[in-house]
Write a protein that binds this DNA or RNA. Structure first.
Length: 145
RNA sequence: GCAGUAGAACGGUUCGCCGCACAACAUGGCUUAGUGGCUAUGGUUGGGAGGAAAGUCCGGGCAGCAUAGGGCAACGCUCUUCUUAAUGGGAAGUAGGUCGUGAGACUUAAUGAUGUAGAAGAAAAUAACCGCCUAGAGUUUCGAUUUUAGGUAAGGGUGAGAAGGCAGGGUAAGAGCCUACCAGGAAAGUAGAGAUACUUUUGCUGUACUAGUAGCGAGCUGAAAGUCCAUGUAAACCAGCGAUAAGGAUGGCCCGUCCGAAAGUUUUAAUCUUGCGCUGGAGGGUAGGACGAUAGAACGGUGUUGGCAACAGCCCGUCUAGAUAAAUGGUGAACAAUGUCUCUUGUAGAUAUUACAGAACCCGGCUUAUAGUUUUGCUGCUUAA
């Protein structure tokens, strides 16, 4: 089991303050100029915000009732996505440029349950894509200035 | 032992690591005269989904709104008694029907009018068309036949149904007219808390449909209810004051200048009404936070009393989730249960599976889903004694 040492394990927390729950922030995420990327069966919607204080990344996880009728299945998927984000997020946050916070929404696209390996891979590639895009955007803006 | 039937209980366990929401404590910070309050935490400890948490089908609590009192309409329920906070739940019973060898299962049950019906038929409820019988009159080929007045529900035909069915007596012919048996109704008696059951009496007895009617119940909405805090401010509303104004424009500010609202009723004024300005009140909406919101018709008891039972009383013990874009998860191992395979046939090994399903204001019931396990009563078959 490749782990990055005791310190990294200890960093892998996901408390309430890192959840995205304010209605205004959620509306902003889904309406105004946010970017999205899909790695089936997960779609990531994200937008960068100026970072002031608190957690740098806020995340929400959503599974539509259309895809899974039973609440048990929805809970299962959401828990797995949260869990794998928790395990992968440390590297992602360390790569972010200074002064940038980010809001992410992970949306489930499939109608079927997936195994854990697939969810884990999807989450990690999504995080890579997002960090690449963010870094690119921040470079562009700094060049533009 | 096998098969079945009606219930009841459980519905994975243990350890390690990482994580989640909640509570208490600890520590730090801010604040207060102080108790305290707020806040943070790579800190410690604690407990953290269900028997159905589901469907939202009933009922109750709780909340808001409405409401003098009463009635009608519309709505719900409908064998009896008991039980429950409860009206459709539950228990014990009653009378029928269907299925099963049986234990049992399923099912129906207020009452039906003075209303409606109509192909057929004379007639659909004060029944006489044909037929049968009696009497009178006429005709007569003496066989009968026509007609008038009556009696008659046995026979014919129609119909789902024709005066309860069937047999005997009876009669001019017939008829519950009388009698026996059978089915139903009514009354009385006996038993029962009652639905009913049994006995006796009574000649009382047409079909189908309709909830018209009777009794009982119930205001409406639903926690996205509702209450509060802070933020913030258009129009309209209420109260007070003003109009010799308040206020506005210009301007960085002050002075100054300019703008600025009165109208109606009445002879006039006041009052009044409408309008204008200001202040205060009250207040809709948006996003945020707190309460509602978790100790109760609570749960457990081979405790006890009453009861056939559902259930009720008393006694003893226990504290048992509380989120709000919504916690209860991931992972490593061991075990358990069940199925399959293997051969070394066992307290074996390998492998697979472990259901239905996630609290959302709280309770009670009902319904539906459910791998597997345990258990009680009873039934049938078989074997042994």
């Amino acid at each position: 089991m490749p782990t990055g040492g005791i310190k990294d394990i200890a960093m892998a927390r996901f408390p309430k303050s890192e959840h995205l729950y304010l209605r205004s922030e959620i509306d902003a995420l889904f309406t105004s100029g946010s970017t999205s990327a899909s790695v089936f069966p997960i779609r990531g919607v994200f937008r960068s915000v100026p970072y002031v204080e608190g957690p740098r990344v806020k995340v929400l996880v959503s599974v539509s009732k259309r895809h899974f009728r039973l609440a048990t299945d929805r809970n299962r998927i959401k828990r797995l996505m949260r869990e794998h984000y928790r395990l992968k997020k440390t590297d992602f946050i360390s790569q972010l440029p200074e002064g940038v916070g980010i809001h992410i929404g992970f949306l489930w696209l499939s109608d079927k349950m997936s195994d854990q390996v697939r969810i884990e891979n999807s989450i990690s590639t999504l995080l890579n894509i997002i960090s690449d895009k963010i870094i690119l955007a921040s470079r562009k803006s700094s060049v533009g200035q």
